[in-house]
Nucleic acid binder design. Sequence first.
DNA 1: CTAGGGGTAAAT
DNA 2: ATTTACCCCTAG
Length: 313
Amino acid sequence: MGAPKQKWTAEEETALKAGVIKHGAGKWRTILKDPEFSGVLSLRSNVDLKDKWRNMSVMANGWSSREKSKLAVKRVHHVPKQEENPAAFYTVAQSDEDISDTKSIVVANSTMQTAGPMRTTVRLDNLIQEAITSLKEPGGSNKTTIAAYIEEQYWPPHDFRRILSAKLKYLTSNGKLIKVKRKYRIAPTSTFSDRRRNSSMLFLEGRQRISPRVEKDDSNMLTKSQIDSELAKMRNMTAQEAAAAAARAVAEAEAAIAEAEEATREAEAAEADAEAAQAFAEAAMKTLKSRTPPNMESLKLETMEVLFALDSE
DNA sequence: CTAGGGGTAAAT
DNA sequence: ATTTACCCCTAG
């Protein structure tokens, strides 16, 4: 029996994502026990988490059918900026053969070969959609509100707002969003899958303020200071954690960059590479977790540089 | 416990 | 029809 049904709430999904980011994909039990998430996820089992993550991954993969398509990976095409990037990452990811997925390997390899970052998408579409639906503002939400919502739950990539603008513009011209007086709402007919609207705000526990040392964030939006504190924390992290955090940041940032470009052209192709960054980031995390890199310090430094490089982009 | 294969059935 | 939540099982 498939068992009744209990849709995952946005809070739970957020908690799961945050948990994965914090503890790594696969540490379901750890995530579950973490007091930061146990509240929200108390009704979920570790297997539920795993399955949900699987579902989410499948979605991110673009094309459904859980495990059907082996996905013979694709072209890594043009890259807006080409510098020598996270060499440390790529090296690490590549030097590992226990990267389970074909896609991961391909990503690493192709990335190496083209000496450029892969393009990706972090489902900004979905984030926007989630923001609008969750905010439930009559008449839609304006850009600032949407940005604030997203920034509250996700680590905002450097030039996030610029990208958001481009994306919003594109989605509007595309008919997926309707803009009325600077407010966006989801087009009724759109392909936006429109998901649950279970915005029962239980506790606002789903996501804690990351900065323990910055106590003065009353109503202040924690964007820049959050980044700073993240970086500060990274210095005290283990290489694995630092790399994982950085990997995620890199993936998101590059994805955002790709998104921005794509938005001004055609966003269709963007979906196809959606998983690339995720696979890459996961591979990096996985690798770094299973084996401690020889030179932790240099790795840490490398990741830092990556972050700064991206930040000054 | 986790990964992942496979399956059922409720929702959409 | 597809997606999605949940279950079960096996290997490691």
